[in-house]
Amino acid sequence: MLAQNLIIYKFPVLYHILEELCLDLNFNILYADNENILNDKLKNLDNYLVITKEEKPNINRQFVLKQTPASVYKLVEKINIEFLKVQFNNQSEVKVKNYIIDLNSREMLLKNTKLRLTEKEINTIIFLSKSNKPVSIDDLQEKVWSYQSDIETHTVETHIYRLRKKILNTFEDNEFIISKKNGYQIK
């Protein structure tokens, strides 16, 4: 699991309190007292949460602490819950080419356009995107559909055809899944 990083933005009192407790916490504590320092820290971190006194525009994964809880332990509990939310959201989104695949809502997203997908379509896209070379129809039948390769079926070809058509109609992308002589590929 990636290290969790709590960035405390313009809240020095909170930083000093949590810094004293750092050995008992399951996240790293960082401090930023201006926007440039904050942006520099965010560039280098994947798993982070920014805690502020008031909501700041253009900051993702932000936890606004408007009222300080009665105890530090409740605050740490709230921070841990926010980290769990961030982790859940990170695990639910997969980036494939320029698209985001949202596993929870079963949608493929590009800018403001959404395409609803079936679970099998999502599994196909993810399986293809993880391969560096074309994936054979037999491999797709076995790994995505759990069919034996000696069974004569056109399930894979039919699903790929329909999926490509959906993507073409929604995103006007004719190159998302490419047909090669030895299988299908997402580059």
Score class of each variant (00 low, 15 high):
residue 62 Q to R: 07
residue 119 E to K: 10
residue 47 N to W: 04
residue 33 D to R: 05
residue 182 N to E: 11
residue 111 K to Y: 09
residue 100 I to Q: 10
residue 59 I to C: 03
residue 48 Y to Q: 04
residue 124 T to P: 01
residue 115 L to H: 04
residue 185 Q to F: 13
residue 128 L to D: 04
residue 127 F to D: 06
residue 168 L to M: 09
residue 95 K to R: 11
residue 115 L to Q: 07
residue 109 L to Q: 13
residue 21 L to N: 11
residue 162 R to M: 08
residue 160 I to Q: 03
residue 91 Q to R: 11
residue 98 N to K: 14
residue 28 N to R: 09
residue 165 K to F: 02
residue 157 E to G: 02
residue 178 I to R: 07
residue 130 K to S: 09
residue 58 N to M: 10
residue 158 T to W: 01
residue 141 Q to A: 14
residue 124 T to N: 04
residue 17 I to C: 05
residue 78 K to D: 12
residue 93 E to I: 15
residue 113 T to W: 00
residue 131 S to N: 12
residue 37 I to N: 10
residue 187 K to W: 03
residue 43 K to V: 14
residue 1 M to N: 12
residue 7 I to H: 01
residue 116 R to A: 08
residue 14 L to I: 14
residue 18 L to P: 09
residue 55 E to K: 14
residue 156 V to I: 13
residue 90 N to G: 00
residue 66 K to P: 01
residue 71 S to L: 08
residue 95 K to F: 06
residue 135 V to G: 02
residue 137 I to Q: 07
residue 144 V to I: 15
residue 47 N to R: 12
residue 44 N to M: 10
residue 128 L to H: 04
residue 147 Y to Q: 11
residue 168 L to W: 08
residue 182 N to F: 00
residue 50 V to W: 02
residue 138 D to N: 14
residue 92 S to Y: 01
residue 8 I to N: 02
residue 134 P to E: 08
residue 19 E to Y: 13
residue 130 K to Y: 04
residue 1 M to E: 11
residue 50 V to R: 01
residue 137 I to G: 00
residue 91 Q to E: 15
residue 162 R to D: 06
residue 16 H to M: 11
residue 132 N to G: 12
residue 119 E to A: 06
residue 183 G to F: 06
residue 49 L to W: 01
residue 136 S to N: 06
residue 24 D to G: 07
residue 186 I to F: 01
residue 168 L to Y: 10
residue 180 K to V: 00
residue 103 L to D: 05
residue 49 L to I: 07
residue 49 L to S: 05
residue 12 P to M: 11
residue 181 K to V: 06
residue 111 K to I: 10
residue 163 L to A: 02
residue 151 I to L: 13
residue 97 K to S: 11
residue 176 F to K: 05
residue 176 F to N: 02
residue 109 L to V: 15
residue 10 K to P: 06
residue 174 N to I: 09
residue 18 L to W: 09
residue 1 M to C: 09
residue 81 I to E: 11
residue 148 Q to F: 05
residue 27 F to V: 06
residue 119 E to C: 00
residue 180 K to C: 12
residue 58 N to D: 14
residue 159 H to M: 13
residue 183 G to I: 06
residue 86 V to R: 04
residue 184 Y to S: 06
residue 74 K to H: 10
residue 115 L to C: 08
residue 131 S to T: 00
residue 138 D to Y: 07
residue 132 N to W: 04
residue 91 Q to M: 13
residue 67 Q to R: 15
residue 183 G to D: 05
residue 156 V to K: 02
residue 147 Y to D: 12
residue 53 K to C: 00
residue 54 E to K: 11
residue 172 E to F: 08
residue 160 I to L: 05
residue 106 R to C: 09
residue 120 K to I: 13
residue 37 I to G: 02
residue 113 T to M: 05
residue 36 N to S: 11
residue 35 E to F: 03
residue 159 H to W: 05
residue 89 N to L: 15
residue 33 D to A: 04
residue 29 I to A: 04
residue 146 S to V: 05
residue 47 N to I: 06
residue 15 Y to A: 07
residue 24 D to C: 04
residue 149 S to M: 05
residue 108 M to L: 15
residue 153 T to C: 13
residue 33 D to E: 15
residue 172 E to Q: 12
residue 51 I to P: 01
residue 58 N to V: 04
residue 90 N to K: 14
residue 51 I to M: 02
